[in-house]
Design a protein around this nucleic acid. Structure first.
Length: 810
RNA sequence: GCCCGGGUGGCGAAAUCGGCAGACGCAAAGGACUUAAAAUCCUUUUUCCGGCAACGGGAGUGUGGGUUCAAGUCCCACCCCGGGCACCA
């Protein structure tokens, strides 16, 4: 009879149909069981899933299935970040309403995810373009507005011409838009809505230490740098003549006697007063030239204003310059330059022949004529009454003086800025406020939520939000005075949606509140979050902020959204990151068509540990396919076999089986190196295939059952099929994970290596736990070793029980 | 420049606590089956030297030092690759 062949198409379609309408993986609320909340980062349904996404899901899904089999109450929900630029752009390109377009794509994404056999709780699906969801964005916004956490101001903001919208600082990468990597962002002064993330800057920074155990270090480092807290002093210099204060921020007030000039950012408000005529034009050129170049490698350039500022400590006059390297957006937009003790100032002053005056000496050295900036702390010199103090003491005393005399204060500055959430874009959550000519900015009353996006909107992709051109949307009555008024036309950044979507999964149908807090108390924090590192300072910082806001609103008890974060490596093909422009993208559909979902998932987990980059090769995938074929044929031809067996073969196979169970369980519990888990399964297969004819029916049945269970987290379709082949009723993942029996797994003899001077010269088999003395004696008595030792003097013998004997000779 | 990772066969990788380097797989070569191909199965596969052979010997984890009976693993210096930050005062 010809052997049954592995036909993945037939198997995967069969189970997909059988599972189609059932909710296989449903998390139970208010359960007494231990919970496990595992989640992959939210995707845009902008196109097709490619194998880079699949890797992300395959990791999360293997984990979810494993935890399910270990008896956990698992929440593994699925959602769609349907708002945003991809939807709007595609809609423009296809001349369709973004809403229709998105719904179409969501269906497509769902189909792909189902086809991959992922174990989602489909009853908890959330799409952020649904007003049922985004009304709560508006609700949160109003709560923040009440508490002063949301505000509107005119500010210099990042503008991407390609997107036709404003971007948050986090969304600017190398001076360009994060979506258009070759389009430099412009600075524009616009009225914008902001969320006060800086109120939480200290807390977000300090709490990073609580995440050290479960989050990758590089993500935490990036967040620390991004928040960029620095402690220092603000000091007023005074404009000679008028006495107008020029406030500077410094972390090194102890060096202020060495301040030989004051430098203003070209955008500094005072520049307009100081620079007239020709100078004004040069300042404008400076601003323009900086905007046109990427940041980082601009040459330092300065313009002398002809004016001076008085140093409040020394009373000295310092020339006032305008410098292109001084940032308006950090500190006060003005600095004191201390060339002797700051590298940037040194470079600048040297270039323009400005005096360099050292005022700090090393603790164990002399005050040196500066040929390079000495930037360490030391002892203050040539600084009037402060001379002789340590840098640290001087900072404290000098800051105290500034505060006492009212010309300065201790100050903390942050690199992080408030989160600009306004977008001049149609497709996003409408910001729920109304502009009334009489009453000003009036929040939309809660009972009128949600403010729903109109669906028939002429999309231009240029200029202001297309909503401006929809009178039915824009024209409203003021809720306060009843007169004619206009809606806000800005919509919210889509990172608002992704900041709390994972909370909504706990209670997706709730129509009276964003969620029921008691459900959050059970599920949160997320036990394991999985996604790409590219969100380190975007989504992952916004969602930490949002969680704290919700906590302060009394809605949640946790301060952090996720206990553990895992960042998976990229999928590479032909030596390059997959991208459309290189034409090396493998879509989920292509992969399934060629190899099947099981093979694709198995190979993606097998090729490399999940945190590393992974090379996709068709040949490698083919190897995974061949393995599944071997497993399939092995199981189907041995089901119900009744041939007898030898005790010896049985024992060896059982040993390997239990070692494999132990190995894979360890991998799941600690490192998630699924590549070695799958290698262990392959070894098991190699061994049982070799012993196929020698093992008893009972052991064969045991092996088949456990092999199927071990495969289930990685290749669910074939596992389900093989489970059925064995006459079992599924689903296979509702069966308990196998437990390794240490007695069966134990080797009966230890192989002990004998080394002479560290080189392996022989090996002996002994019982486990053989004493050091016996081992040493056995090693020295070994025929081959004896010959090697002939004529040499044994200096020392090192014995590691059950492992090795090293004989040191001269 | 600063801060993280990383460097192991032709390739992806393994070696989890300082104890046999290269598990597992891909590719390649040879063989079996086949009219043939695919599929499948078997064998070889770090490298150099000696040998018809079983086998024996040497070298080997980016480079150079060091600690140790023993180093891919620990320490010091350096080179290269990847990522992050970069005028943040």
């Amino acid at each position: 009879m010809p052997e049954k062949q592995y036909d993945f198409n037939q198997i995967e379609m069969k189970w997909q149909e059988r599972w189609a309408d059932s909710v296989l993986f449903q998390a139970e609320d208010d359960s007494s069981k231990p919970k496990y909340y595992v989640l992959e980062m939210l995707p845009y349904p902008s196109g097709t899933l490619h194998i880079g996404h699949i890797r992300n899901y395959a990791i999360g899904d293997a984990l979810a299935r494993y935890k399910w089999m270990r008896g956990f109450n698992v929440l593994h929900p699925m959602g769609w970040d349907a708002f945003g630029l991809p939807a709007e752009n595609a809609a423009i390109a296809n001349n369709r309403n973004p809403y229709d377009w998105t719904m179409f794509n969501i269906e497509n994404m769902k189909r792909q995810h189902r086809r991959m056999g992922f174990s989602y709780d489909w009853s908890r699906e959330v799409a952020t373009c649904d007003p049922k969801y985004y009304r709560w964005n508006q609700w949160f916004f109003l709560k923040m507005l009440e508490r002063g956490l949301a505000y509107r101001k005119r500010a210099l903001v990042n503008w991407c011409n390609e997107c036709g919208t404003v971007l948050a600082n986090e969304q600017v990468v190398d001076g360009c838009c994060w979506r258009h990597e070759s389009v430099p962002v412009e600075q524009r002064a616009l009225e914008q809505w902001f969320l006060r993330i800086t109120d939480y800057a200290d807390e977000l920074l300090n709490a990073i230490k609580d995440l050290e155990e479960g989050w990758p270090e590089r993500v935490l480092v990036m967040q620390r740098n991004w928040i960029g807290r620095s402690e220092g002093t603000e000091v007023d210099f005074h404009l000679e003549g008028s006495g107008t204060p020029i406030r500077v921020f410094t972390t090194r007030v102890d060096t202020i006697y060495g301040a030989t000039c004051v430098i203003l950012a070209p955008e500094h408000p005072l520049v307009a007063d100081l620079a007239g005529g020709e100078l004004k034009a040069r300042v404008k050129r400076m601003i323009d030239s900086r905007a046109s170049k990427g940041p980082g490698d601009i040459e330092k350039e300065g313009l002398f204003t002809g004016r001076f500022a008085i140093n409040p400590y020394s009373g000295e006059k310092a020339p006032i310059w305008i410098g292109n390297f001084v940032l308006m957006g950090y500190g006060t937009g003005a600095i004191m330059a201390v060339p002797a003790h700051d590298e940037r100032d040194f470079e600048f002053c040297k270039q323009y022949g400005i005096a360099i005056r050292p005022v700090i000496r090393p603790t164990d050295g002399e005050l040196a004529e500066a040929t390079t900036a000495f930037t360490d702390d030391g002892i203050v010199e040539n600084s009037g009454p402060y001379s002789g103090l340590s840098s640290e003491d001087a900072r404290r005393v000098m800051t105290g003086k500034a505060e006492a005399e009212g010309f300065g204060k201790a100050a903390v500055t942050y690199r992080i800025k408030d989160w600009g959430i306004s977008r001049q874009r149609y497709w996003g959550t409408p910001i729920p406020v109304i502009h009334c000519p009489k009453c000003g900015i009036v929040p939309v009353p809660e009972r009128d939520l949600p403010v729903v996006l109109p669906l028939k909107v002429p999309i231009t992709g240029k200029g202001r939000s297309p909503l401006v051109n929809v009178p039915e949307f824009m024209n409203v009555k003021c809720p306060k005075c009843g007169e004619d008024a206009q809606r806000e036309s800005d919509t919210m950044d889509t990172f608002v949606d992704s900041s709390w979507y994972f909370y909504r999964y706990c209670d997706p149908q709730n129509s009276g509140a964003p969620f029921d807090s008691s459900k959050i108390a059970y599920w949160f924090p997320i036990d394991q979050y999985i996604g790409g590192v590219e969100h380190a300072i975007l989504h992952l910082i916004y969602s930490r902020f949002w969680t704290r806001v919700m906590r302060d609103l009394g809605l949640v008890g946790n301060s952090e959204p996720a206990r553990r974060l895992f960042t998976q490596g990229m999928v590479i093909k032909d030596g390059a990151k997959m991208s459309k422009s290189r034409g090396n993208v493998v879509s989920a559909d292509q992969m399934i068509e060629r190899f099947g979902a099981d093979t694709g998932r198995l190979f993606e987990l097998f090729a490399a540990p999940p945190e590393k980059e992974m090379d996709w090769t068709d040949a490698g995938a083919n190897g995974a396919y061949a393995f599944l074929g071997r497993v399939y044929r092995f199981v189907t031809r041995n089901v119900g076999q009744t041939s007898g067996g030898s005790g010896e073969a049985d024992r060896k196979v059982l040993r390997k089986l239990h070692q494999t169970i132990s190995k894979i369980t360890d991998d799941f519990e600690s490192r998630w190196h699924f590549n070695t888990s799958i290698a262990a399964l392959m070894e098991l297969m190699n061994e049982v295939t070799a012993a196929e004819k020698q093992i008893s029916a009972a052991v064969m049945a045991d092996v088949l059952e456990k092999l199927t269970l071990l495969l289930a987290p990685f290749a669910p379709y074939i596992a389900e099929e093989l489970w059925e082949e064995q006459g079992r009723t599924g689903p296979v993942f509702k069966h308990a994970w196998p437990v390794s029996d240490p007695e069966l797994a134990r080797e009966d003899e230890a192989e002990v290596v004998i080394q002479v001077n560290g080189k392996v010269r022989g090996r002996i088999a002994v019982a486990f736990g053989t004493s050091r003395e016996t081992l040493q004696q056995n090693a020295l008595d070994d025929g081959k070793i004896k010959a090697l030792l002939d004529g040499k003097q044994v200096v020392k013998v090192i014995v590691v029980p059950d492992k090795l004997v090293n004989i040191v000779v001269k």
